[in-house]
């Protein structure tokens, strides 16, 4: 067994069939990782805030819906959730719907990945939102109601603006998590960054170089997300508000 032969040129080698170069595979994987994660993030943010609000309303049954959702989606591993959506759901739906999911829908593994990531992450965001709302003194809400705001208005104009500001640090780590978690989608055949990295490794056997680059790309994504969120935090800061907390 001779030792490993490093070859950083490998990314510019041409694939035997098809005429592409290997770096193009990684780029397409990276783009798919970003697309999947961003789309899932938008959905998760919307759904998570909605559910988080639900769990704090005075309406008992709305609270329950939120709580049950959070418990279910938080307590099943993401990979299992993906399998449920991808393999199980089409089989238990009426055949015509199931067939549409399997063959009618273009790019089923992409949509499955987006939705399962979104549903999974929404539960975690909902929890943060709930904790955030609970941490705001009850007086704020009462004052709002006393001024003649409807409950919806209280949330929209008083509670959520505060909560979202408090939540930026935990949201940042969820945002990074969604990029990391998108790699689980390789198990349902989505050719995202991790999967294309694997493929290049299979074709070239230059695993060290390939996985080094993949690692750097993930670290890069995390740094960019961190910077963006820090920028947002800076811009929406209310002077003197959070410092006092």
């Amino acid at each position: 067994m001779d030792s490993y032969r490093w070859n950083w040129q490998v990314f510019w080698n041409t694939v035997d069939y098809g005429g592409e170069q290997y770096y193009q595979w990684l780029v397409s994987g990276l783009l798919l990782t970003i697309a999947t994660s961003l789309l899932a993030w938008c959905l998760a943010l919307f759904l998570g805030i909605l559910l988080g609000v639900c769990t704090t309303t005075p309406l008992k049954w709305v609270c329950w819906i939120g709580d049950i959702y959070v418990e279910v989606f938080r307590n099943i591993p993401l990979i299992v959730q993906m399998f449920l959506w991808f393999f199980v759901l089409p089989e238990i739906l009426p055949p015509s719907w199931g067939n549409w999911l399997k063959t009618g829908l273009p790019f089923p593994e992409f949509y499955t990945a987006v939705f399962s990531l979104a549903f999974f992450t929404a539960a975690r965001i909902a929890e943060q939102v709930k904790a955030g709302i609970m941490s705001i003194p009850l007086g704020q809400k009462s004052a709002g109601l006393a001024m003649g705001f409807t409950l919806l208005q209280v949330y929209r104009y008083i509670l959520l603006p505060c909560v979202l500001r408090i939540m930026i640090p935990p949201l940042t780590s969820e945002f990074i998590n969604i990029f990391k978690n998108s790699s689980v989608a390789l198990t349902i055949g989505l050719l995202e960054l991790m999967a294309t990295g694997q493929q290049v490794n299979e074709y070239t056997f230059q695993g060290m170089e390939v996985f080094s680059v993949v690692t750097l790309l993930y670290v890069g994504i995390a740094l960019v997300v961190n910077a963006i969120m820090a920028g947002i935090e800076e811009r929406v800061k209310i002077p003197g508000y959070l410092e006092g907390r």
């Binding site: 393999f87 089409p90 089989e91 067939n99 399997k102 063959t103 089923p108 593994e109 198990t187 055949g189 050719l191």
Partner: peptide, 17 residues
């Protein structure tokens, strides 16, 4: 489409994907 192993690939055919 890619299966992780032959059984999974076959399943992808069997379920009509």
């Amino acid at each position: 489409l890619y299966g992780k192993d032959h059984a999974e690939s076959f399943l992808i055919l069997e379920t009509g994907r």
